[in-house]
Amino acid sequence: MTTTVDLAPPPAPSSDPRTPRRLSPGLQPSDRIFHGGATVIGMVVLALTGAIGLFLGFQSIPTLHYYGLHFFTETQWLPELNKIGIAAVLVGTVEVALVAMVVSFPLALMLALFITDYAPKRIKSWLISTVDLMAAVPSIIYGLWGFYLLQPHAINVARFLSQYVGWFPVFHVDTDPNAAVWQQSRYTSSAFIAGLAVAMMAIPLACAIMRGVFDQAPLGEREAAMALGGTRFGVARTVVLPFAKGGVIGGTMLALGRALGETAAVLIIISPAYDIKPRILEAGTQTTSALIAGNFGNATKSQLSALLTAGFVLFLITLAVNSFAAVFIRRSRSGAGTEI
């Protein structure tokens, strides 16, 4: 393609040929406008996004001042009784996210490895599209899927787990799992099932990042491992995975950040319950986003600021997780090698 470009005007001929020609003529007017415009946009975005962060921070000061540390230790959310705390909510948020991670991490890792190292060419591009599409599916659709299609099957697994490993507090359910007519409703709407639906959102995110890093594993080392007689798994174990360790951790953390803030799917599946319990298979839990979605409607101003504070705490957690992820991803993917 031929492009015509504006030529910079030739430098003014200097009167004395022996003084050096000025090399940086400064910015063109068009460039000055361009730089100014881009700076303005950058600053507007900075001001807007920064304002949100600061606003949330300032909003939470009165709440934290009023409730003090009880805000973090109180489990109930009873604004009428002036009892407000996020202890149970935070535990629920983390439980749902952890279930999602436990399910999605091995699947995302294996899928990414399959795409880069194992899949035949035809399947490979097709799988990449599938994973990208999976990332685009709205979370509320995964919520419907989890509630109507997955839940009737998942409660059987939940019952099985509570039957055989119920002595472990995480898998315990407060009902008799061996009863002839077992109480199905004790196993529905749990953190476990919500986590399964959230995992569907976490898988494509983690997989895309892991795949990107696996692809960059040095070809020479791969070939060397193959030439030494390594199997594909041998190559993956000795070359690809050690190279991509940072990307694997980073991708997982990024997916965790997303899982912590998920609203719609969780809102559809769980039934709210405000108690700290490790029993992820049991009905009822609460997450921060679901708390906000469920309580903002009839909240007074001070309750709204309490909800904002709960949201701000969630934001700080996801921010910490994301920053942690960014450090790992940056370390493993430098962007070098794109220069020509």
Partner: peptide, 24 residues
């Protein structure tokens, strides 16, 4: 520009903002 590092930091941290919090 001089502020680009700050802009990058703030924008990157804002991708962690849960949607519900933006709505709220």
């Amino acid at each position: 520009g001089r502020g680009s590092k700050l802009v990058r930091t703030v924008v990157e941290s804002m991708t962690a903002l849960p949607e519900i919090l933006a709505g709220l």
